[in-house]
Amino acid sequence: MNLQELEQLCACAGVSGCENAVREAIIALLPKEATHTIDPLGNLIVRKTGTAAGKNTVMLCAHMDEVGLIVTEITEEGYLSFAHVGGIERRGYLGKQVLAGKRQVPGVIGLKPVHLLEGDEKENIPPEDSLRIDVGAESREAAAALVQPGERVVFAPGLTCFGDGYIKARALDDRIGCLILIELLRQALPYDMTAVFSTNEETGAGAAQAAAFALAPAYAIVVETTTAADLPGVEGTQRVCSLGGGAVVPFMDRGTVYPWDLYETAQTLAAAHGIPMQTKTKIAGGNDARSITTARGGIPTITVSVPCRGLHSPAVVMQQKDAEAVLQLVRALWGELTQK
């Protein structure tokens, strides 16, 4: 896992519908033997020829977009009003720095100071329509020269490595999945490989469905991140999965009921290759698998995820060795399904 490349991918602003910078960065990292096309919805489709064609086309998929904010209005005082794009952790952006619009203008999301709060205000998170982004503009005109309604806003912090092999960054969901696919495409391949870097996953709009229609694969593997709630005070199944527990393969989430035979295949392959694997102990989350599964009359799809703490917040945390387990398991599953 090349951490510098991960940092580069996470630094790209790519809130849903504005994935251009991410797509450019991925293209720059592809091996020269790979060919790519961009479909009408902005999905990046990459193909690499292997030693043989392989029996089946297996669509590998990771999404390029990230959750963030969208500017809805500039107020008379020069503040930006905003709405959420994707399922954001509402508490995550309070009191944090952001980068607004195409020019990546630094701004902050502040709150009424703690000293001035009364009663319940101390305990409740104010609704987002009462919050504003302050970019230092002193009038509507000054702000409008920096950013326009409809432009996106990302969280500012970059990537930091800490502790024993832990990584903290903004858009690990799903830039880590993108990097895993890039790494796979760089390997010597026994069969032809098709990888989709999709748009608009976080909005649930499912641009991946269009890519699946066009590619008509026999199977699909979604490479993702998923929520780990392995914190002190969270017990049993509520923990969902754990950092350091290996690749996460769910049998079901809130978007997809996965084919049981594919789930079993993942377990068998993980055991055979000694790859750490875990499942999700709570039916939670959802991803592009829901869009791909229903494309073209049905495409059996499986998801392999990197467990992450603080998903959809400015500070997503993962462990490097889990990403390595995901890479190994995806490679094994891809080989198996290609020849199934």
């Binding site: 509402r90 409740n124 998170i125 929520t227 709630a229 989350g285």
Partner: peptide, 19 residues
């Protein structure tokens, strides 16, 4: 370095309304 964990919104929709 350290980070104060944010629980995920998928799990704790009610928690995300509270400090």
């Amino acid at each position: 370095f350290g980070v104060i964990p944010a629980s995920a919104p998928h799990l704790a929709e009610k928690d995300s309304e509270k400090a």
